[in-house]
């Protein structure tokens, strides 16, 4: 991180990423597919993993999932299907 080399010029053909502060809930959900997310259930249990996909009922398929119960990892799943009625929220765990 020295000042030896000047910063590269900005690439000409890179449109700015869509701001994550606007857009509909659907836009958000489309944006987080393939990203790391936290899924919180109404029971308070969190699932952290990569969001494979979801449907209109908020049924969710996660990969590399960790189950967190009040801060500690209680289980790991390669793949996990979560029934949508249990979902309280889906939160992005990395930049969109």
């Amino acid at each position: 991180m020295s000042d030896a080399s000047p910063p590269p010029p900005p690439a000409e053909a890179s449109p700015p990423p869509p701001p994550s502060t606007s857009g509909s809930p659907t836009d958000f959900l489309k944006g987080v597919v393939g990203k790391r997310v936290v899924v919180r259930l109404t029971s308070g249990v969190d699932y952290r993993g990569v969001l494979s996909c979801l449907d209109g009922y908020m049924n969710i398929a996660l990969e590399q999932t960790e189950e967190h119960v009040n801060g500690t990892v209680t289980n790991r799943y390669g793949d996990a299907f979560i029934r949508g009625n249990n979902v309280l929220y889906i939160s992005a765990a990395e930049a969109l």
């Binding site: 990569v50 494979s52 996909c53 398929a61 979560i82």
Partner: peptide
């Protein structure tokens, strides 16, 4: 398409 070729959550179950 994600890495596992799953398009909807029920595919995981199928």
């Amino acid at each position: 398409d994600t890495s596992s070729g799953i398009q909807e959550p029920f595919d995981l179950i199928r």
